[in-house]
């Protein structure tokens, strides 16, 4: 028996969108190409070099020799294969496009909103643009990256995405925050 499978976003119907644009905006990426890359033993430098050399990937630090790779250029269906070809024996690649949800929090109060749930120093000097790390946001472990002075990228596991968005709304209660899906 043949089934028709449909791709449904983890937050479809539960996002509680606030579509009116406010000073701070949380956008949930609709189709994000994400892969987890773990360097082979002793090959972290080579793997990092390959990831950085190509401008098509955005590698976010997770742990020594481990990155979450996002791409605007590649489709979710092809990112894993593309990375495997480039990295060869230097690293192991697992596609996470449907396993994780990527969000962007942007606005003048972005760091203050995050500070309500994250115990890391998010000052621009301590956590500069381009830095990424796993952090505990309330009770959820998420990957946080600073993509601009007042822009943060968050990657969270699919099943926790709903809880994270709810948490972020609570964290932003004393700030103006709108929430919606990305237009892409």
């Amino acid at each position: 028996m043949a089934y028709d499978y449909q791709t449904v976003h983890a937050l479809e119907g539960t996002i509680g969108a606030v579509s009116e644009r406010r000073a701070n905006h949380l956008s949930v990426h609709r189709a994000s190409a994400i892969a987890s890359v773990l360097a082979a033993p002793g090959r972290a430098a080579e793997a990092a070099g390959i990831l950085v050399a190509s401008g098509e990937f955005e590698a976010r630090f997770v742990a020594p020799g481990e990155w979450l790779v996002l791409s605007d250029v590649h489709a979710p269906e092809t990112l894993g294969a593309e990375l495997s070809v480039r990295l060869g024996d230097f690293a192991f690649v697992v596609d996470q496009s449907h396993g994780r949800v990527a969000l962007t929090l942007a606005g003048p109060d972005a760091a203050r909103i995050l500070a309500n749930g994250i115990g890391a120093d998010l000052h621009i000097d301590a956590f500069p643009v381009g830095r990424a790390a796993n952090v505990l946001c309330n009770h959820l472990s998420v990957n946080l990256a600073r993509t601009g002075g007042d822009r943060f990228g968050i990657v969270v596991t699919r099943s926790f995405a709903g809880a994270l968005v709810d948490d972020l709304k609570v964290m932003a209660r004393s700030h103006e925050l709108s929430v919606d899906f990305d237009t892409r």
């Binding site: 742990a63 115990g119 890391a120 120093d121 301590a126 956590f127 790390a133 952090v135 505990l136």
Partner: peptide, 11 residues
Amino acid sequence: PHCGTRPKEEF
């Protein structure tokens, strides 16, 4: 040494 200063709840 990899992530920076963090609260003990992360450990």
